[in-house]
Design a protein around this nucleic acid. Sequence first.
DNA 1: TCACAATCATA
DNA 2: GTATGATTGTGAC
Length: 923
Amino acid sequence: MQNSPLSPLILVDGSSYLFRAYHVPYLQALSTASGQPTGAITGVLNMIRSLKKDYPNGNVVVIFDAKGKTFRNDMYPEYKANRPPMPDDLRTQIAPLHEIIAAMGLPLLVIPGVEADDVIGTLAKQATEQGIETVISTGDKDMAQLVTEHVRLINTMTNVEMDVAGVSEKFGVRPDQIIDYLALMGDKVDNIPGVVKCGPKTAVKWLTEHGTLEKVIENADKVKGKIGENLRDALEQLPLSYQLATIKCDVELDQTVAQLQPSSPDKEALVKLYQTFELKRLLAEITGGEPTEEQDRKTDTKVTQPAKSGDIVVTPVEVSETEYDIIYSKESLQKWLSLLEKSERFAFDTETTSVDYMKAELVGLSFACEAGKAAYVPLAHDYADAPEQLELSWVLAQLKPLLESKTVHKIGQNLKYDANVLSHYDINMQGIEFDTMIESYCFNSVATRHNMDALATTYLDYKTVHFEDIAGKGAKQLTFNQIDVEKAGHYAAEDADITLRLHLTLFPALEQLPEQLSVFNDIEMPLLPVLARMEQGGVLIDSDLLDEQSQQLGQRLSELEVEAHNLAGQSFNLGSPKQLQKILFEDLKIPVIKKTPKGAPSTAEEVLQELALDYPLPKVILENRGLSKLKSTYTDKLPLMVSNKSGRLHTSYHQAVTATGRLSSTEPNLQNIPIRSEQGRKIRQAFIAPKDHKIVAIDYSQIELRIMAHLSNDKGLVTAFSEGKDIHRATAAEIFAVELDEVTSDQRRSAKAINFGLIYGMSAFGLAKQLNIGRNQAQDYMDKYFQRYPGVLTYMEETREQAVAQGYVETLFGRRLYLPDINAKNGMRKKAAERAAINAPMQGTAADIIKKAMLAVDEWLLAQNDDRVKMTMQVHDELVFEIHQDIVEETTKKLVELMNDAVELSVPLIAEAGIGDNWDEAH
DNA sequence: TCACAATCATA
DNA sequence: GTATGATTGTGAC
């Protein structure tokens, strides 16, 4: 709350908002029936309206540029000479807008000879002298020079406030250096000259080094390289640029700040104006009273259909009122604890300082054991004047038995996170029974995203308080420890309460679907702590090796860049597909082979591969692309992501992301580490074993094809696998009607493409493209395949039919994938859904199988209780371990057995192991 | 500052 | 032709 006796002055940069609103697409569409455009008017008025709402005590003053030249034109005739004239459909909106603002009773300033900026600067200065706080509402970065302890900026479009620290953070220089900064960079739009090639980076660098423009100029002869020359060339111009960039703060005004007070709105005039310009919402507001906050929210809420999975209707658990406690005393905590103990299950949630589980520190805990009733225990809010809170270690000691109890069941939203955080406080969570995120995922993986806000909306038709609501967003977002305990308490208690209600809503629905319930109970929930352990354990990488590779790649990349520029005859950005398109297809007139989905000529790899046969440049581009990808994604980034707590790399596995049941991995994604190219494999060499240990990688051979054999029960395919044949060779022998040992490598390659294509629900067209053969020939191959393996054809057809009839397909273990597009009118979408329908049972069953294998492995590892073996990664069909060299042989043998026996199919499941000092060697 | 498209890494 | 995630450039906001 503002304690200042004087209301803050809110200065609105009307012109800046006018231009921005004019360019907003959905506003551009607005006009009256007679064709008078009103988009910019609407945009600016909405902005003023929301500003008045955000600053109820504020004294709003609106400033516009006047027509005609300003003193800057006298100083520098070319000033803003590049500006196109104002479009007519914008010009016609200015006068009405001024009228409306005047009728609203807001002071409106339009001063000729200067710009709006100068008026704003002048008023802000006067206000400060009189002890009045000022907020400048603008979208213009130049205004940052006006920021002081008493003057802030607010960007009303993004709702981000900027104070002195904010300016430093955003620009990298202090407000008093902004003019210097602007002068150095110049401004293309306003036609202000600056130093050639000096952008924000260089300007900040120089100003950080020397402090002021003056000092930069003094030291100009010390700057090396081309940019140094550019600076010296600009020396004469710079004082002028500085003057042009300086906002004038001593404009002579008729009114003082004190005189700029709102008058009462002229309602009659407003009604008339709103009618003339058909501003219906505003009209309704002054004639029918302002819509309340509640109504605003209602109109924002989408009408949701009852959430369904198949025929199961979900009945939301509702409460008439809520009661959220904040716990400050030992006594009230004890009371809650005894409640939790008695209830056998409770929902709980941790609040922390970070979303990164390796960095997160506990700030508070919340609980709920009855819908509508929850409590928050603040522990580490540390802003100034934070109330006294219970001691963290004492509270955790009280809670430890409950959290580690197997019989007291815990309910949570993404409990893997909470478990990981608590493990850093010596709490090994047990009894993790219900995760609402996973309940939703098992119930219907594609109905919604599975974060709590989405679940509450879908299943409870309830709008939660969002984290951003209490913490703000963007650079100024607070961490949880800085948030007011009362606000935080409501948010956190609501989290626990909503989690409980979601569970009470979703779990009964899940119970009506026995197969999916079993996926939940027997696969996903048991897997959760396994994944937590893998994440927590992390993997070891050799950062020095990666750094070295980065260096080498960097060298090669600059060579390639020079080469490419020479070949193109001009300099361009190799990373920009757009620039490349221009050079390739316009300047060099190379024929377009393929287009991107949006219709631009494609420069994708396969296209360049083909072009590389005839032209030299595409080859260079290809090598450059490949290498820069490796450098930026892997060799540069991975070393930076090593935790300084553990010295290892910790990924996050996501259990509720993919449609098919696979895991996904982020920060970093360990499931797409290169392997195919020579260069790429070097990166795997940096995934190393600790001293005296080996890396063991065990992967399932042809798992999806084996699943296809099992699901289709095709005799030929099952036999081929049972006899342990090379499956692609066997397929080739059948299709091409030759003996096994007569299969050529080309035939095997074709058969392999067919086998993979089948898994992807491919058409003859796709196969033709893949193998670079005619469509008829591809069709011929497929016909032959289905002749030899008729069971596969039947299976594919049945799957498609099942998808159309039921709207979903399922894996061997009953995990369902709903296909909303399967009956789409749009042929493309329907076809895509059909292909997904074919693929999902195979990809999904493979995911189920490796998850079961992980459970078996983890169970065995726990029983061994031997820290010489660790499961570190999962990559869809592969598990990676660290094993002490003394026991590596026998342990590997056991692990292979566990994986082979994870599931019984009608064909053998074969896992193959590799052992080495790094991940590359282990393959 | 943010979201999207294009590209490319994996299974 | 299936399923993902990260990076880069680009243009809207």
